[in-house]
Nucleic acid binder design. Structure first.
Ligand SMILES: [Zn+2]
Ligand SMILES: [Zn+2]
Ligand SMILES: [Zn+2]
Ligand SMILES: [Zn+2]
Lengths: 151, 151
DNA sequence: CGTGAAGCGGATAGAGTATAACGTCTTTCA
DNA sequence: TGAAAGACGTTATACTCTATCCGCTTCACG
């Protein structure tokens, strides 16, 4: 598996934000760190819970504000079908990605498939539709879980 | 526009449910009727409001149960990005469809595009992923609204 | 320095979405 | 008729997200 360690993702985010002239504050960074460290999508309240180091009391707007920033910067994605968030696996370039979501183990794979992008674009343009945002999520069973089931 | 009148959709639903041996009760039928009559996606609580003929008090589980049934039977679809529901435009055969959602006027177009289906299937199978449910929603501007904007 | 604008974040409240749990009534079918 | 399954009413509650107000920090500008 070529999953980047969370530290690398965070350093990349630092660089990107600096280059863009936006501020990856401690709190935003912490949310990103929590998302990258988790091996699965997290709900806003799960992130909130993880942010509470037993010390501060934190309210929902705190995490939603951080998420808004991270979403705008393309550092995290929202999974609409789960109401949950994941760290982006390749935030260095703007992209629209697709997600394979395992309903059994929670594994999420972020794809950047040209053929899917092209077919969507073509279908939209046929009707004169101008795409802005694209939500592509496939819920099913990952190879690992499928293998176990058929053993 | 070849939009079916709501009555036709309801009669088709009657036939389908009878053939499948499931019960399209008055309440379920009413939810479907409300969705078909609306020219736009409706939230669960909007449906609930429409169901209250000024008489009965109705609670959320009522509409969610009806929606569960209609979703299972493929008579309605859920738009995950809007938390809203629409009547299916061709419920006679099992299908996975894609949605073009106009952010300006709320128009929703249900597509059944072979190329998109094929590219998704191919991308999934490359990783051994077994798809069960597919969420494909493109948010943007419809041809009509785009035309107005550039006038 | 002083000051004002902008951005960030704490805090409270509340809107909107969805489900759990339990009881009752109806339909189905042996 | 009687049992089982399904549909529905009801209450309560969990979960997701936003509005709003206020205070703090930062930083440019005079
Ligand atoms: Zn990404
Ligand atoms: Zn899995
Ligand atoms: Zn459909
Ligand atoms: Zn439009």
């Amino acid at each position: 598996m070529d999953v980047k360690p969370p530290e690398a993702a965070l350093e990349e985010a630092d660089t990107l934000c600096q280059r863009r002239g936006v501020r990856l504050t401690a709190q935003r960074r912490q949310v990103l760190q929590i998302l990258c460290a988790a091996r699965r999508p997290l709900g806003a309240y799960e992130i909130l819970e993880a942010m509470r180091d037993g010390s501060r009391p934190l309210a929902p707007p705190t995490v939603y504000r951080a998420l808004d920033f991270l979403l705008e910067q393309g550092l995290v994605h929202k999974l609409e079908s789960l109401h949950a968030y994941v760290g982006c696996t390749h935030p260095d370039h703007p992209h629209f990605s697709q997600f394979l979501i395992c309903a059994d183990c929670g594994l999420v794979t972020e794809l950047e498939d040209e053929a899917i992008a092209a077919s969507l674009k073509s279908a939209a343009s046929e009707t004169g539709f101008r795409p802005r945002r694209r939500v592509v999520e496939v819920i099913g069973t990952c190879a690992n879980c499928a293998g176990k089931a058929t053993d």
